[in-house]
Simulated assay, not measured.
Amino acid sequence: MEKNARVYVAGHRGLVGSALIRTLEKEGYTNILSATHCELDLINQQAVADFFAKEQPEYVFLAAAKVGGILANSNYPADFIYENLMMETNIIHHSWKAGAKKLLFLGSSCIYPQMAEQPIKEESLLTGPLEPTNDAYALAKIAGIKMCQSYNKQYGTKYISVMPTNLYGPNDNFDLATSHVLPALIRKVHEAKVNGDQAVTVWGTGRAVREFLYVDDLADACLFLMENYDDSKIVNIGTGVGISIKSLAENIRDITGYRGKIIFDRSKPDGTPVKINDVSFLDSLGWSAKVDLNEGLKKVYSWYRENELHKK
């Protein structure tokens, strides 16, 4: 991409979008387009059509999405499937109508079958049943992948799709009702420390294994792929290394300085037993993650204390 190219980041205030903005600015891109929800409702087809006709972006990072953890996905499946389908459909279609040179669609490792062989290869897509607690979200993301591939096939576009693992970092969602496990644990453990609580309760058995990627690493990988990859094959992004939720909770306890117990509520679901991305394909393209999990946890806990606590 030319440094003065018109680059649109959809979802620029979110966890991924804000990291993309940081990375693009750091790399010297000078013509970055964005719009708040008040300025542009991505669910509104005509509003998106008007935006693309006016702004004519040359490159599009589709990071806008409705996301959440097990609780949110279980309680609001209609919201997750409708909003994600509408956003991606509008943006992908109008990127094509406006003649965008390239688009990068951000999916999720949640798209893969619940019992996919570990670590999960890109070829596992649509080979088995989805995890039932987030199937609405997963189906919406799969539709986005297929839409990118279909436009490539029919119109010769260069729309690529990436599947990041579990993400964390600055601008994460720390709302206990809608957040993913890592930010939820940071908030829970920090509040238990401040309140002098004797224990923190965590959903599930603690045995579930997850992989976590610092979001600035993801942004760096996305920029690398936007500049170096054109194929329709989806690309996993991650570290390739997993950690149990029990160990994650203990690491967060150590980083926050909390001295209480971690108790697991076995009546609550674990979700997928193990979920780790096979990142050998991305490695072969020449990119690998740089931020170690403990280093990343320290960074995000510092950000949480500096940016979130004043909101309470």
Results as ranks from 00 to 15, higher is better:
residue 46 Q to Y: 03
residue 104 L to V: 12
residue 267 S to H: 08
residue 226 M to W: 06
residue 194 V to F: 06
residue 17 G to C: 02
residue 29 Y to R: 05
residue 4 N to K: 09
residue 93 H to M: 13
residue 110 C to H: 04
residue 205 T to Q: 11
residue 1 M to R: 01
residue 258 Y to F: 15
residue 129 P to C: 13
residue 274 V to W: 05
residue 230 D to K: 15
residue 45 Q to L: 11
residue 226 M to K: 05
residue 89 T to N: 13
residue 118 Q to P: 15
residue 40 L to W: 05
residue 234 I to D: 00
residue 143 A to I: 00
residue 21 I to V: 14
residue 292 D to K: 15
residue 266 R to E: 04
residue 95 S to Q: 02
residue 265 D to R: 15
residue 113 P to W: 01
residue 280 S to G: 05
residue 196 G to C: 11
residue 247 S to C: 06
residue 72 A to F: 06
residue 95 S to T: 04
residue 132 P to F: 00
residue 275 K to N: 06
residue 203 W to T: 02
residue 17 G to N: 05
residue 273 P to A: 04
residue 175 D to K: 15
residue 222 C to T: 02
residue 103 L to R: 01
residue 164 P to R: 07
residue 59 Y to H: 10
residue 258 Y to C: 14
residue 225 L to M: 11
residue 104 L to S: 03
residue 88 E to F: 04
residue 189 V to H: 01
residue 78 A to L: 14
residue 91 I to V: 14
residue 156 G to D: 02
residue 189 V to S: 06
residue 58 E to C: 09
residue 181 V to P: 03
residue 109 S to E: 02
residue 176 L to V: 07
residue 46 Q to V: 11
residue 182 L to K: 13
residue 264 F to K: 15
residue 217 D to F: 08
residue 161 S to V: 13
residue 196 G to L: 14
residue 99 G to C: 01
residue 134 N to S: 13
residue 256 T to F: 04
residue 193 K to M: 14
residue 195 N to Y: 03
residue 209 V to P: 14
residue 244 S to F: 04
residue 141 K to H: 01
residue 231 D to L: 15
residue 305 R to N: 08
residue 201 T to K: 13
residue 259 R to K: 13
residue 255 I to T: 05
residue 307 N to S: 11
residue 278 D to G: 13
residue 131 E to A: 12
residue 38 C to R: 10
residue 90 N to V: 14
residue 188 K to C: 05
residue 201 T to I: 08
residue 217 D to N: 11
residue 137 Y to N: 08
residue 296 G to D: 00
residue 152 N to E: 03
residue 262 I to T: 07
residue 254 D to E: 11
residue 188 K to I: 02
residue 74 S to I: 03
residue 297 L to P: 14
residue 174 F to R: 15
residue 8 Y to L: 15
residue 193 K to E: 07
residue 169 G to Q: 08
residue 249 A to I: 12
residue 13 R to M: 10
residue 86 M to E: 03
residue 50 D to V: 13
residue 112 Y to P: 15
residue 77 P to S: 05
residue 120 I to G: 08
residue 286 G to I: 12
residue 236 N to R: 06
residue 230 D to Y: 10
residue 273 P to C: 08
residue 118 Q to F: 08
residue 295 E to F: 12
residue 297 L to H: 12
residue 230 D to G: 09
residue 309 L to G: 00
residue 150 S to W: 01
residue 120 I to T: 09
residue 98 A to T: 08
residue 136 A to E: 00
residue 37 H to M: 10
residue 210 R to N: 04
residue 234 I to L: 11
residue 274 V to K: 15
residue 148 C to K: 07
